[in-house]
Write a protein that binds this DNA or RNA. Structure first.
Lengths: 195, 195
DNA sequence: CGGATGACAGATATTGAAATCTGTCATCCG
DNA sequence: CGGATGACAGATTTCAATATCTGTCATCCG
């Protein structure tokens, strides 16, 4: 059937990711992506209304993939303190690994992320909701003091920005980064527990 | 006496600041600064070994000026919790005001600050030392639990990066920024007090 | 003699013409 | 008929020639 060779949005996204990885955000063109797919660039525009929309979709996909491991941790049973610590450490480790193992690709995504503030805000909300879930578990279990979980979750996210916001990526390779993270975690944990 | 018209480093710095404000970091040249001073650009090089050094000195001066109000708060007597809150709020307010009232000048300083990581690190150390001073007072007064003041101070600084690091300046104009700050402060205060 | 000058070489930035890219659409193909 | 194509116009980027800037230094001036 003809649909065997049908061009799908998914194929385009996957190839776009390859091309971005290879050429970088400044050089990757729609024509490059179409060439890599063996189609004309007009066909790409059948699936995405603009280059910007395509780049946004690539970013979305990337963020989605990066965050599903975290959702699993948030949904686990068990002590909230340990879970929140692991959740934050996993987030930090994932970001740091991406930033250090392939700095060019990471820079590519930093550029893309800078272009789509709306998409990023959604993802921040998703992440904060996961923290909130763990915090609420903690309160229910009596591990944490009873405080409004929404603002507390947001505060935890903001307080740890140094360890997950790409703007601070340059600091992640410092040897003391892990120590700094643990010290901050101790302070936050005390704050969550309260008196 | 001849020294009435003597060209001083201070005059150059002050004029350099004007020229940077007027032309922006990309366009301000040494020749522009010399012209504004009414001297040849060679004379500027008698006081600063390079354009980079001159820009660094301007940045240093700017950071110094921005931070002396904070040193006063750190040195005050009185309750540590209130003092630390005021110190952080003052830092946030000063940054936010600069960012909002004159975005171009702020962008200029963001560029300069990005050029001189060493200078910035020194200033971060100065600021952390001020936090540490307040934290130590708090422990001495029995307001805060007894924890290593160095790491705690650094944690407080990192945790509040969202409200003082220029990388987050775009978020400072959000109406919820003040709320976010107070929520984070509550969490940190609980963490400092401990059980 | 201490300090300012401006000509100069090499590095960096600007500019505008040419090349390429984005996004559209009339046309074609299975 | 649904989907792919590639020619096209206007926007954007590249590139090389040109202009400007940085940093040095022999010279000058009070």
């Amino acid at each position: 059937m003809a649909t065997d060779n049908a061009l799908t949005a998914e194929q385009i996204l996957s190839t776009a990711e390859d091309v971005l990885r290879r050429f970088g955000p400044a050089k990757a063109t729609v024509v490059d992506i179409a060439r890599a797919l063996g189609v004309s660039h007009g066909s790409v525009y059948r699936h995405f209304p603009s280059k910007a929309a395509l780049r946004e979709a690539v970013t979305q996909r990337w963020l989605d993939r990066a965050h599903d491991e975290l959702a699993a941790i948030a949904a686990e049973p068990g002590p909230a303190a340990e879970r929140l610590h692991r959740w934050l450490a996993t987030l930090f480790a994932a970001k740091r690994q991406k930033a250090l193992e392939d700095p060019e690709l990471f820079a590519t995504y930093m550029v893309l992320v800078g272009e789509v503030s709306g998409t990023v805000e959604e993802h921040v909300e998703t992440l904060v909701a996961q923290i909130r879930q763990i915090v609420e578990d903690g309160v229910r279990r009596g591990e944490f003091r009873d405080a409004p979980a929404g603002p507390v979750a947001r505060s935890v996210f903001l307080a740890t920005a140094h360890f997950h916001d790409p703007a601070h990526a340059a600091e992640w390779s410092r040897p003391a980064a892990q120590e700094d993270f643990e010290a901050l975690w101790s302070l936050l944990l005390e704050g969550l527990r309260g008196r």
